[in-house]
Design a binder for these strands. Structure first.
Lengths: 255, 255
DNA sequence: CCATCTTTGTGCACGCGTTCACAAAGACAT
DNA sequence: ATGTCTTTGTGAACGCGTGCACAAAGATGG
């Protein structure tokens, strides 16, 4: 293996840690901003600060991609933008389908960030017949009945679910059956998918609850310990009154 | 998923691991569903499956809260719902303010999940004077000029930012100055906050890019072997043409 | 009261991710 | 060329989170 190049392509396609992949978009964003300001190069320190991470971590992350920096100087902004874009697969077009056109679905359809990096809203799908044909963000909403065809015709491999939780799994199954292999789920439900299908979830409720936990902690720091009686309370119901059979969630969606 | 807190050792005081805290809402959701079906008890195995996690992990998570299960039987659903709710601080009321009432902000305001667990939309704030007074989800939008007063008067400690990225940091600073100590950021920007303030982020663009990475990987498995010239491309300019001055982002927001 | 069966709670080992700290690489001046 | 200075790339240590595997606890039945 001496033929070598300065760096080893060994770890290339295979070994990029998941944590690193999750940070690449962050670096890319910071780099794009620098690129627009025509900044030619950046040091790991500067870029790390801009991306809100540790410089050592950034260098290690980049080391998984290869040796793209110049010691004593830093990284070439344009070059790095290209390399990361390529690594993330953003140099190609990704048609995306959004299923569930309610408040959230419509908001996402109008989201400018979609089109910015190779992502293109190829179709909007909803179960409400009344919505069929209605234009949202310039795209006519199509009915769920045609889901399979829509996915196939547009070569959609990434689906976004913004339906009420009760419909999420069913929609997910249909998307997968139609060929979708990556799903971004906004419905507060645990989706089960076959091997090979990636699911990422965005859950407002969970995020708020995590914040509440820390908030309570902060508030309680000066207050007395909790020794009082952690288990005296009602052995029975939840503090808040239950509402529908779907007490937990959602309904960003309309119909 | 989303999220990223500003670095910090955290979790020092009460010892509950951050990873566990992040899963508690998931357990709570599953438990609530069981509760509504009047199921009295569940085994770690069943609950774990419902929450989409490993049973050993679930048991270990619960062990941080205390020994709330009964060997040979399982966990008392109602009791556990209460314990987790209490631990997460959901037994109290959390007034939340949403800043930036565009498509996304409005969608969140209408989000049913907000009210479900102690979270209450206390105020909607926007910088557009024309929106002041306009009711969204039954709440009149207020102008940014009154932000400080609004936060103080309502005792808001959790703020949600759904503004364009350019305004996010400024809004964040004002929220923090007004007393907010937890922020949920939907704007694609790295927010810098003082010690003691928690920030969690939800970034659609990043999630999609992560999915694209894996999608590309899957597609490339059977496709052509690469390895040839990882760096043949342009050393100078970016492959894609630059677009707007905000190439990266967002704009879910209107005005 | 004893035996058996179920399920929890946890000690332990492993692997990933983070961070430190530094040698090596290159730029730049003399 | 040689020396100095800057910044990368990475070896190594550390800490957190995960999952295994099992002993202990309690239920249940005879």
């Amino acid at each position: 293996m001496a033929t070598g190049r300065t760096h080893r392509p060994a770890t290339r396609s295979r070994g990029i840690p998941e944590a690193t992949v999750a940070r690449l978009p962050l670096y890319l964003r910071a780099l794009t901003a620098l690129s627009e300001r025509s900044v030619p190069t950046v040091s790991s320190e500067e870029l790390a600060t801009a991306a809100g991470v540790n410089s050592a971590k950034l260098r290690k992350d980049f080391s998984y991609l290869g040796s793209y920096g110049t010691r004593g100087v830093g990284y070439d902004v344009e070059y790095l933008v290209y390399q990361i874009s390529r690594e993330l697969g953003l140099t190609q077009d990704w048609p995306v389908a959004i299923v569930g056109i309610g408040n959230l679905g419509a908001a996402l359809a109008n989201y400018g960030g979609f089109a910015s990096r190779g992502f293109r809203v190829a179709a909007l799908i909803d179960a409400d017949p009344a919505m069929a044909g209605t234009p949202v963000a310039g795209i006519a909403v199509q009915h769920t009945d045609d889901l399979d065809r829509i996915i196939s015709d547009n070569g959609v491999s990434i689906g976004v679910i913004t339906t009420p939780p009760g419909a999420a799994q069913q929609v997910c199954d249909r998307l997968v059956a139609a060929g979708v292999t990556s799903i971004l789920n906004f419905a507060p439900t645990v989706l089960s998918v076959p091997e090979g299908v990636d699911v990422r979830k965005v859950d407002l409720s969970i995020e708020l609850q995590i914040l509440a936990f820390h908030e309570q902690r902060k508030a309680g720091e000066d207050a007395p310990a909790e020794g009082e009686d952690p288990e005296a309370p009602p052995m029975r119901a939840t503090p808040a009154s239950r509402k529908g059979p779907d007490g937990d969630m959602p309904a960003v969606m309309p119909a």
